Amino acid sequence: MHTATDLKTRALRRIGQFAALLYSLLSYLFFLLTFLYFMGFVGNVGVPKSIDSGTGLAWPWALVSDILLISLFALQHSLMARKSFKDRWRFIIPAPIERATYVLVSSAVLALLCGLWQPITSVVWKVESPVATGLLVALYWLGWAIVLVATFLFSHFELFGIKQALAPLLRPALVNPVFRTPTLYKVVRHPMYLGFLIAFWATPEMTVGHLVFALTSTLYILIGTHLEEKDLVTLFGDNYRRYQKNVAMLLPFVRRNSGSED
């Protein structure tokens, strides 16, 4: 027999679970809107303010501002992704919404980057050939397609925190992480990062501002990948070490040699 207090506690717990799911869904929606804008921002297409548009600061200050913005995103993204941070963070943020909060904060910092970015429009290179221009534009969208596909190869909705918020409602059995290498992961260990690199560099007109963005983002991806690989080795042990030896990190079909990396 359940007492009135038991039923009230269970009802309140259920309301909290639904609130966590709503929070995660809203965080995901904010991410989608921000990320779609970011795609247009990098490609100079369909957005009011892009990487090369608008008026900004004089170039020395614009350069400093842009590097600080990317550094802010990199620090937030990497710090909040570390296990040591997550372990402390869960004392403040409940586990079902921990990932959604990470997604929300990351999206907010990305939106800040797009909004405060200072264009530096001096041209580094410009492709004149219509055929080459078309190929580069196609490559740009291919990069984003690779990013999207990579998110679904494991669990798109777990990556963005919705699955974690659903778990208390559905009460699924806990499953330990299983080491898998689906499709693209048989070609490179980090296809999502490869997609980002393609999208950041594939442009028929490279300005100084875009080049700063591409260079600093590439540096961050390389550092972030190294940190992520340390976590994956800790999680999967020898399985991941063998995977590192047999599959390239970012450059497709380039196998790792002993003591070196692509």
Rank of each mutant, 00 (worst) to 15 (best):
M1A: 10
M1E: 10
D6K: 07
Q17D: 11
F18T: 09
A20Q: 15
L22F: 10
L22N: 06
Y23A: 05
S24N: 05
S24F: 04
L26M: 13
L26S: 10
L26N: 11
Y28M: 11
L29Y: 08
F31C: 07
T34G: 14
L36P: 04
N44A: 09
G46H: 05
P48M: 03
P48I: 04
S50P: 06
S53T: 15
S53L: 14
G54S: 01
G54I: 02
T55I: 13
G56C: 03
W59M: 13
A62S: 10
L63C: 15
S65F: 06
D66V: 04
I70T: 12
L72E: 09
Q76K: 12
L79D: 03
K83T: 15
S84N: 10
F85C: 00
P94N: 01
A95S: 14
P96S: 10
P96I: 08
I97C: 01
I97F: 07
E98H: 03
T101H: 08
T101Q: 06
Y102R: 05
A111R: 03
L112Y: 15
L116H: 04
P119M: 02
V124H: 00
K126H: 14
V131W: 14
A132T: 08
G134Q: 00
L135P: 03
L142D: 00
G143A: 02
W144Q: 04
F152G: 09
F152I: 00
L153W: 02
G161N: 05
A167W: 08
P168R: 13
P168W: 09
L170C: 08
R171W: 06
P172D: 04
P172H: 01
L174D: 15
L174P: 14
N176M: 13
P177V: 05
V178I: 15
T181Q: 13
P182T: 03
T183F: 15
T183Y: 12
L184I: 09
Y193L: 13
E205M: 13
E205N: 09
T207I: 02
T207F: 03
G209Y: 06
H210V: 05
A214G: 01
T216W: 11
S217R: 05
L219S: 08
E229H: 08
D231W: 04
V233M: 07
L235S: 12
L235M: 15
F236N: 10
G237V: 07
N239D: 15
N239I: 00
Y240A: 06
R242G: 09
N246C: 11
F253I: 01
F253G: 00
V254F: 12
R256D: 07
N257H: 11
N257C: 11
G259E: 07
S260Q: 13
E261W: 10
D262N: 02
